[in-house]
């Protein structure tokens, strides 16, 4: 695909031309391919957030001791950052799967080309890729949850709900990521995604409460999607359930809807020319 496809202004087809209702075939293909993929790579994905947890939770935790959570309880620093790391890894995985991975397969691999020659439509491919990203997110999420449980960082039974929450977070980011990818043409442009993700990673109440900042900064952080994800998961693993969590969930539902809307609108540009 090249920039010139833009100008040719393809005529619009109905969504039915984009969707054959068979996204599960794309998911099936992904699972078969995973089966023969390098298991060391798959497993190494688990250890990444665990290293962060051990390093920061133990090393930094020794200095920091405890942090006051939203419910006013003092909780160990490791229990404070663990849910944040869970949300962050869901974000990273989903963004990687829906941006780099899709961009690469689209522009360099010929996988989608083969899929789209069948009765599959581009929406099947996009949904299939998103579902796969969610599946991976869920698997990694469960793994991390088990580690949290072993380290005693799940402070309430509601931690069980953190896994569906992680899937929701992954869904939101994957949908948005794919929508954004449809506007990108070069690898250099893709780099900007990471420039945006870094501040989100560092500032979204991941490592410290946002109350350390002046109020305007706090509001800015609260506008970011990751903050909602972190707060949602933290509330569940620490057992501080509040009505505001509904806002977090709604935020992600909105991301899903907006992401899918843009993705569908841009699907022709993304997959067909």
């Amino acid at each position: 695909m090249t920039a010139t496809t833009e100008r040719s202004a393809p005529r619009r087809g109905a969504v039915t031309a984009l969707y054959a209702g068979n996204a599960r075939a794309v998911v099936g293909r992904g699972l078969v391919a995973t089966r023969s993929s390098n298991w060391v790579v798959v497993i190494s994905g688990f250890v990444e957030p665990i290293f962060y947890l051990l390093s920061l939770g133990i090393g930094l935790g020794a200095y920091i001791g405890t942090v006051t959570d939203a419910g006013g309880h003092e909780i160990p620093y490791a229990a404070y950052i663990a849910p944040a790391l869970l949300a962050v890894s869901a974000m990273n995985g989903a963004i990687y799967d829906s941006t780099w991975n899709v961009f690469f397969k689209m522009n360099f691999g010929k996988l989608y080309q083969g899929m789209l020659a069948t009765s599959l439509g581009p929406l099947d491919v996009a949904l299939g890729e998103i579902l796969l990203a969610l599946f991976r997110g869920a698997v990694y999420g469960v793994g991390f949850q088990i580690v949290m449980q072993l380290l005693g960082l799940n402070l309430s039974w509601t931690a069980l709900l953190a896994v569906p929450a992680v899937v929701l977070i992954a869904f939101g980011f994957a949908a948005i990521g794919m929508g954004i990818t449809s506007y990108f043409r070069t690898f250099q442009q893709m780099e900007w995604i990471f420039i945006v993700m870094l501040p989100m990673f560092l500032l979204s109440a991941t490592f410290f409460p946002i109350t350390v900042y002046p109020e305007p900064v706090q509001w800015a952080v609260m506008a970011l999607p990751l903050w909602h994800g972190v707060e949602l998961v933290r509330g569940l693993t620490t057992g501080v359930i509040e009505p505001v969590m509904l806002v977090h969930v709604l935020y992600y539902l909105a991301m899903v809807v907006a992401g899918l809307f843009f993705t569908t609108r841009r699907l022709r540009a993304l997959f067909l020319d």
């Binding site: 087809g13 031309a17 054959a20 293909r29 993929s37 996988l111 083969g114 020659a117 009765s119 599959l120």
Partner: peptide, 25 residues
């Protein structure tokens, strides 16, 4: 443009360059 999936379901396509799925056997 309107019935992509219906048409493609009745076609077999051999593209100029093989695009076999190299991750599968």
């Amino acid at each position: 443009d309107q019935h992509g999936p219906e048409i493609r379901s009745r076609l077999g396509v051999v593209p100029q360059q093989d695009n076999l799925d190299t991750e599968l056997r």
